[in-house]
Computed example of a mutant assay.
Amino acid sequence: MSTYLVKRLTYILVILLAASFLIFSLYALTPGDYVSSNIKLSPERKAELRELYGLDKPMLDRYVIWIKNALQGDFGYSLAQQKPVLTLFNEYIWNSFLLAAVSTFLTWLIAVVIGVISAYKQYSWFDTVVMLIIFAAMSIPSFFIGLYLIKMFAVDLKWLPPGGMTTTGSNATGLAYAKEVIQHMALPVVVMTLLGIGSLTRYIRSNMIDVIKQDYIRTARAKGLTERKVLFTHALRNALLPAITLVGFELPGLFGGSLIIEKIFNWPGIGQLYMSSFSLRDYPLLMSFTVFIAILTVLGTLLSDLLYRLADPRVKLD
């Protein structure tokens, strides 16, 4: 196991180095930047700022400087926000994590339960209705679902707030603050859960259909075990083994999978900050966030491999 981890970590470092150079090159070669596109600055001030922030240097020199600073925990300075990138991450990224973590938990919980029941009752009216709802949810764009829920629950019924994380001007603390946050995150969590539940339910349903046809499932039933124990103890454990590979994609999705949703609901997360940085051409922030997603991606694949080994001792990691 230790040899495997050393090999994987070495590969991860090489991959991240190559990915960081590619990401830096793409942003560096993109025409324009925050300084040159800012019409409020005079040509002299633009030239001064470009020299101050090293934007007038060759691309390779800029990359070497950036990677050295990044290894020391300095990911650059956001010219648009006038703050260090790491400070902005600390301010916004936990809001995104809260939103995505809750929706991910609900997505897996609901998908597992519905997928198991749908596989057990294959071709029944329940299975048919579930498949129709899943395909409908997967075919409707996220922005349409979000705007429709805002109109229904926030504008028409006035049950929930239309956006934001807290009420404007609110000074609530403690339980009152937690209640406000829960109310404001209800709609975006519902939308993100609906978007993720479709493909995951189909995946679990397909795996369960294959598993419940195996001989050991018939043996478990022959021993007199209850159907619930057979399905959720014996069958589900083996059906979830292929789904463990999806965990690796969930980790970067916790921060990068809600860009549009955060924009629609005005949620103060890293996704909305990332989207607004595009129009401002704030490349230090854009580049750092993209590298951050790349780091989470490679770590997520490593985590899924380790979890697969823990779930199935027959798997050897060499």
Score class of each variant (00 low, 15 high):
L241C: 08
E262Y: 07
K229S: 08
K263S: 10
R218V: 13
K229W: 12
G256P: 01
N207L: 06
I217V: 15
V247E: 12
A243F: 04
L236T: 03
V211F: 07
F249Q: 04
K213M: 01
Y216N: 04
L231R: 05
F232D: 09
T233V: 11
R221P: 00
F232H: 12
E250I: 05
T245D: 07
P242M: 13
A235H: 01
V247T: 15
L240F: 14
S206M: 13
G257Y: 06
E227C: 15
R228N: 05
A222I: 15
E262C: 00
H234I: 03
I244M: 07
T233Q: 12
Q214D: 13
G257S: 06
F232M: 06
S206R: 12
L236G: 00
K223N: 12
R202Y: 13
F249N: 03
S258V: 13
I217A: 05
S206G: 09
R218P: 02
L236K: 04
A235Q: 05
G253N: 09
F249C: 00
I261R: 03
I260Y: 12
R228C: 07
L241T: 08
T245S: 14
Y203A: 05
M208P: 02
F249R: 00
T245C: 02
D215V: 06
R202N: 15
N238D: 10
T245I: 09
I212M: 15
M208C: 07
V211R: 00
S206C: 07
R205P: 01
E262A: 01
T219G: 03
R237T: 08
G248H: 10
P252F: 12
G256C: 10
T219F: 06
A239D: 08
F255V: 13
A222L: 14
L225A: 02
T226W: 12
V211H: 01
G224W: 14
G257M: 06
E227Q: 10
